[in-house]
Design a protein around this nucleic acid. Structure first.
Lengths: 159, 159
DNA sequence: CGCTTGCTTCACAACTTTGTGAAGCGAGTG
DNA sequence: CACTCGCTTCACAAAGTTGTGAAGCAAGCG
């Protein structure tokens, strides 16, 4: 029997990967359980049901339910109803990160707008006003860069 | 008496600006008090002492101390000892956002590295492995973009 | 039709985070 | 050289998060 076993699907290492990613995300302000769900589903070969995710992570269905609601809203998880079954399947879209960037990306515009109000409150000519104006300009710049970045990524994937 | 009063330094609006910025940042995972401190100092005409910041925000010196420690480490606040005095003055560096981006920017590289480990655990050829590899490539791309972005910002400020 | 079962919702409990009061430390001052 | 005063540190309390168990709802199945 030739050694044609499938690749070394190291379950323990996968779990570690999931947890480490999730922990890092949570340190950045992303809900922890949601992150665990994303990476679990991403790591799976096929779409998973809520029950499977919960079992794999060893958490209650309630936790999955909440995480999934959040994630689908963000576009980081896609719910696929299975015809003739109550089970829904979940999978991660190929470009989930791009989606997040697009959606959350508006954050910079929001900051820029808030900063602009700050400038008005402080007065254009005050030292504080100038500093906040500088910040506003920076956020406007970043917002523009992100838009360009998304375009470049898409283009580079065409190739 | 001619109407040559200084600009309409609307204290209430400034406070609102500070609080709104801080709240939004905290929703993104940034410590709330630290954010309030940054924007308070940024709004002021001159560098402020810890006591002044605390008074302005109506919080204890302890809270300021903690926030300041965090912020100086991030490069978002500069401590300036006043010669012949126990008081330190604080100001925000012009390019604090850039600093943060640089420092925190390495996050993407970190994600890319973690993802790479995930790929190894999953196997290059599995569906999961391919998805994670895609994610890794995206993070690598973003990291590169950020570096370029910083350079472009600096250049645009030269002009 | 009524039972099973998978997901959702709700109230609650464990845990974490965040700011306070009080004590401590050390640089300037008389 | 002892006192003052500004900042820091620490233990704790208040508040906010996050996941659980249990009850509820509704789609398929017998």
């Amino acid at each position: 029997m030739p050694d044609t076993k499938p690749p070394p699907r190291d379950d323990e290492a996968i779990r570690l990967f999931v947890e480490r990613m999730a922990l890092t995300m949570s340190e950045l302000g992303f809900p922890r359980m949601a992150a665990r769900v994303v990476y679990t589903v991403m790591s799976a070969d096929d779409p998973m049901t809520a029950a499977e995710i919960g079992e794999r992570l060893g958490v209650s269905p309630a936790a999955i339910s909440g995480a999934v609601r959040h994630l689908t809203q963000l576009g980081m998880l896609i719910r696929e109803p299975v015809p003739g079954s109550r089970r829904d399947r979940y999978r991660v879209p190929e470009d989930s990160w791009l989606e997040v960037l697009n959606l959350k990306g508006g954050v910079y515009k929001m900051f820029a707008d808030m900063a602009d109000e700050g400038v008005r409150a402080l007065g254009e000519q005050t030292p504080g006003g100038r500093r906040v104006a500088y910040m506003r300009d920076f956020f406007v710049f970043v917002q523009g860069e992100i838009d360009g970045m998304v375009a470049r990524w898409r283009a580079s994937r065409q190739a």
